[in-house]
Design a protein around this nucleic acid. Structure first.
Length: 546
RNA sequence: GCCCCGGUAGCUCAGCUGGAUAGAGCAACAGCCUUCUAAGCUGUAGGCCACAGGUUCGAAUCCUGUCCGGGGUACCA
């Protein structure tokens, strides 16, 4: 157990003892970190919850409790009561001073919990169908999903990063028809794009490839059109992902669920639950009978399944593969559709509590001050690749991670470019590089990191503040596991870097004072370790120099 | 119409399982480099936390309603 948790437990027990002495009935006690260091490190609102019950002013109760509190001064340096009735605790400095040694000992493991050890997790993300290049919007999901996977991995899960796509449906047919139309157009035939067809320039690129590889004599409906289009686009998608450091372990497409009859079997199972009926030539899933507002079509009157059906079979497959945790990362457009998938699994008695669905809001693209509706079909988008080339992978990753996933993201390409060299990510990396440089500087003067430094020399307020920041990392990582939101890590690292830069401005590490230099070397090395741990989870480089 | 997100400094956003003076970056203004990286630090200015009620000792945070923006509500994915 972490030391801080032990301190909390200790405080709660001591408070309960004090209540016992005062003959006050016990209450659930909450110990929370304070926001303002003037009030110490931890505080409790206990007196407020007791106030009503025993009819006294909170401040009086707090004072009475305080006089009956017996705490080890080696652990709790000071107890105070402040208006309107908080009881505050200041943790002893020696607790914080012990952190660098612990962090340096644990290294890359510092802050890691083992909750996921021996468990498997599957994270599905991106999952864009191969109908066009990845857009800035897909980038958000790619980065988010990758970071979520890393958080799980950090906590011990064996993680599979998975990409699921549809290549059997209407969209792919439209893609093929669009390529075909452009192909014949280039050969001088007047064949229009299909309605709702893909208008992007990349279609013409594919046509060029096809003409080069297969000549100009292809017939309409040739399978080559779809094959080449899919292959070309998929390679493009994979290379974009690679550029921001995203690598999936597994690509799964819906075809296999037709081929291995999983879809047929699934329909049969649903029929046995009496939740399937035919109407107007289509096959419906009777979701209205399990509390949903309307029924959903599973097989269209054309005989073609909707995307829902293979999606259900896919999720059934993921459940069958036995993961302890299944994370789906979807865009806001799926907000109404994933419940159908879950309903289906519920009906089939799968434990859907294993599935966590993370919905992220869309990226609104702004160009020349105007909102641009992105549409792959209309050929109107800025590609992820484009963005990476303009700003670099670290900037892109940080840009998406530092925002909450359920906030709409206004993405202004112009400011993204302008701000790329003043992006907050450099602030973090700069702290890391600065530390590396100080360590190098120390080495050139014969100072090397030594385990026998004196932690009690770390007493400057900027040092203590920095130590307190280091203490937060495990908590931040716990929260990240709980919420599966990487944003908190980014916020924390920002704050850690800020405390380091402030320390740097007022405390010199390498000085003539040999023992102080050693202590500070240990401190900044610990900071560097935590920065690196965090940045690695976010998939961001940790440069030694900038 | 119904459902899901959001509305916090001029701009982009944190903070939201209730707590004590609401934060950062950019933009503006004023300072700091004979000393380990100024991609940094310090200070000033900038806020009825959309609005109105409610719950509470205490609300940016929870509840209800209104307004504004985005998305969904397909036999598209």
């Amino acid at each position: 157990m972490r030391l801080l948790m032990m301190i909390k437990k200790y405080l709660i027990q001591s408070l309960l003892d004090a209540l016992h002495h005062l003959n006050i009935q016990a209450e659930p006690i909450h110990i929370a970190p304070t926001k303002n260091p003037g009030f110490g490190d931890l505080s409790t609102n206990l007196a407020f919850s007791l106030s009503k019950k025993i009819g006294e002013q909170p401040i009086d109760i707090a004072n009475r409790i305080k006089t009956h509190l017996k705490l080890d001064p080696g652990l709790i340096q000071e107890i105070s009561v402040s208006e309107p009735g908080f009881i505050n605790f200041q943790i002893s400095r020696s607790y914080y001073q012990g952190l660098p040694e612990q962090i340096l000992k644990e290294g890359q493991l510092y802050g890691r919990e083992t909750e996921g050890k021996g468990k498997t997790a599957n994270v599905e993300f991106v999952s864009a169908n191969p109908t066009g290049p990845l857009t800035v919007g897909h980038g958000r999901q790619a980065v988010l999903g990758d970071a979520v996977a890393s958080i799980l991995k950090w906590h011990g899960y064996d993680v599979t990063r998975e990409y699921y796509y549809n290549n059997a449906g209407r969209q792919m047919r439209l893609l093929r028809q669009s390529v075909e139309a452009r192909y014949f157009q280039e050969l001088g035939k007047d064949i229009p794009l299909p309605e709702g067809g893909y208008k992007g320039e990349y279609i013409r690129d594919i046509v060029q490839i096809i003409r080069r590889k297969h000549g100009d004599k292809l017939h309409a409906d040739d399978i080559i059109f779809q094959k080449e289009a899919e292959e070309h686009i998929f390679n493009n998608i994979k290379s974009s992902l690679e550029k921001i450091g995203v690598k999936h372990d597994r690509f799964t497409n819906e075809k296999m669920y037709y081929e291995n009859k999983a879809i047929d079997k699934l329909l049969q199972s649903l029929k046995q639950s009496d939740l399937i009926y035919e109407s107007e030539g289509a096959t419906w899933f009777k979701t209205s009978s399990i509390g949903k507002s309307q029924d959903r079509v599973l097989i269209k009157s054309t005989g073609e399944p909707t995307y829902r059906l293979p999606d259900m079979a896919y999720h059934q497959d993921k459940m069958n593969r036995g993961f302890d945790l299944i994370v789906d990362i979807f865009g806001a457009d799926h907000v109404d559709t994933y419940p159908d998938v879950l309903s289906c699994l519920d009906v089939l008695h799968y434990d859907t509590s294993k599935i966590k669905v993370l919905i992220h809001q869309f990226v609104t693209l702004i160009e020349a001050g105007k909102t641009v509706k992105m549409s792959t079909r209309e050929g109107q988008f800025i590609t992820l690749e484009n963005l990476i080339n303009e700003t670099g992978p670290d900037v892109v990753r940080y840009f998406f991670i530092m925002r909450g996933m359920n906030s709409h993201l206004n993405f202004d390409m112009d400011t993204a470019k302008d701000q790329s060299d003043q992006n907050p990510v450099y602030y973090l990396q700069y702290a890391h590089a600065r530390i590396a440089n100080i360590i190098k500087h120390g080495e050139s003067l014969g100072y090397t990191l030594n385990t026998s430094f004196d932690p009690a020399l770390l007493v400057h307020s900027s040092e203590v503040d920095l130590l307190k920041q280091l203490d937060l990392f495990p908590i931040v990582m716990d929260t990240a596991l709980e919420t599966l939101e990487p944003q908190g890590i980014a916020n924390y690292l920002q704050s850690l870097a800020a405390h380091f830069h402030k320390f740097y401005a007022v405390c010199r590490v390498i000085t003539d004072d040999k023992s102080l230099s050693q202590s500070r070397l240990a401190l900044i090395s610990a900071v560097q370790t935590v920065l690196a741990n965090g940045l690695r989870i976010l998939g961001i480089q940790t440069p030694e120099r900038m």
